[in-house]
Amino acid sequence: MSSAPAVDSQLLCQLEDVKKSYPMGDLLVQALKGVSVGITAGEFTAFAGPSGSGKSTILNLIGCLDRPSSGRVLLEGKDVATLGDAELGDLRARRIGFIFQSFNLIPVLTAYENVELALRLAGAPEKGQREVVQEALRSVGLADYMTRRPAQLSGGQQQRVAIARALVKKPALIIADEPTANLDSKNGAAILDLMKTMNAENRTTFLFSTHDAMVMERARRIIRLADGEIVSDDAAGPAAAGA
């Protein structure tokens, strides 16, 4: 089942009949089978579903990490299929933040440098960079850990650095792929609450892929996938309902 695109004048991202297939050996695996969905600015949305349902593939496409086999992916009105590698890179650098399941920090850089890296790749002016990076780390509670390398930080702290890295450039969209999967429940909840605060304070759009009930509890919208198709789109998730 494919849901209709969200009707909103502030549509940040739109997928129109998007299909994605991967070669696997001699087979062609259909990861997405014609998905259409719209994401409005400021959403806190979870893509949920079992492994292989296509939730990571959707995030890859929205995050401009991959291109659809057919259909259109529009980000801020731009069809990403028409953009070259360099333009996609620019788009990712300036408009999209990523939070990964395994944190994906650069091990040879300190917490400060990891966050700064995102700003430098976004081409932010050097002037004032230090204050912005320090503020980002302060906002995730790591003011005292700036000079530590990832190996010297706990999993929860690493994910906080990743959040600061994603937020520091003030992107329109943050894509979080199973952000709590490698954290214990206490750290996971804290990370989610932090992201929710950022979402509320900055109106930054958060998209998650997850099968963690804790994430789904906090999401305002849950889009469920199975076998490459959207099977439900709960625009008013438990969090929204409770709000």
Binding site: G63, D85, L91, A93, R94, N104, I106, A118, L121
Partner: peptide
């Protein structure tokens, strides 16, 4: 590989 992927995701050009 994962680090390179991260750099690309963060916007580093190929």
């Amino acid at each position: 590989v994962r680090e390179i992927g991260t750099l690309l995701a963060l916007g580093m050009k190929r």
